[in-house]
Amino acid sequence: MTGSRREQLLSIGLPVATAVVLAALWQAAVSLTDIREIMLPAPTAMVAKLNANLPTLLEAALVTGREALAAFALAVVAGFIVAAASSSSQLLRETIYPAIIALQLIPKVALAPLFVVILGIEAEARITFAALLSFFPVLISTASGLSNTDPNAMRLCRSLRASAWQSFWSVRVPFALPHFFYGMRISSTMAVTGVVIAEFISAKQGLGFAILSASAVSKTATVFAAIAVLCALGLGLYGAVAALERLAARWYRG
């Protein structure tokens, strides 16, 4: 077995093994003590509910996933643009940053109802909220990437009389790419949570809706099944971003 094969197996095997051990402990804890299913359902109960409600849950995941994807795209574009603007002008930076930091300090979950009141009960409110929740990591890491471009490369650009636009796209952006992806990975998970939080405020369908309606009738195992689907959705988006990042790294490193 080659080293890299072994590494690959480890990187898949270890998390799976951890999950299996945790699930076994959980199952044992639930069956050996008299923890009620309403408080903590056993993994087996959860899997049973997952099986029974799979089509409904997948449909809900599709709704939530679509909105999360839209929110994520919005967050990435907005985060990138604000980072680009703030890294190119001190004036803009000093105007925008305090407001954004202040916004970051507000527990945004408390703001979620405002979005519904202002933007209504449709998808726009949820997407906007989730985008707001998730754009900060992209902004901060991209901005730090853009402002940490190799000064030598910037001097090279100046010596070649490159325009600000040229040096931005051909040097600063590629240099900031690893930072950009790092921010995107964090944002991707937050976009999913953001949509679900917004669904808790108002929703006609989706995973947040499924979790709420199941918990309203104390179907805790169904709640857990929906959360499991939610985790899978989040992991899927995260994985897609990570795959994109690997692709970019391949381009970057050759």
Partner: peptide
């Protein structure tokens, strides 16, 4: 009926 689930705050 067109049901919608919302938060108590809104």
């Amino acid at each position: 009926i067109k049901p919608i689930l919302v938060d108590a705050k809104v």
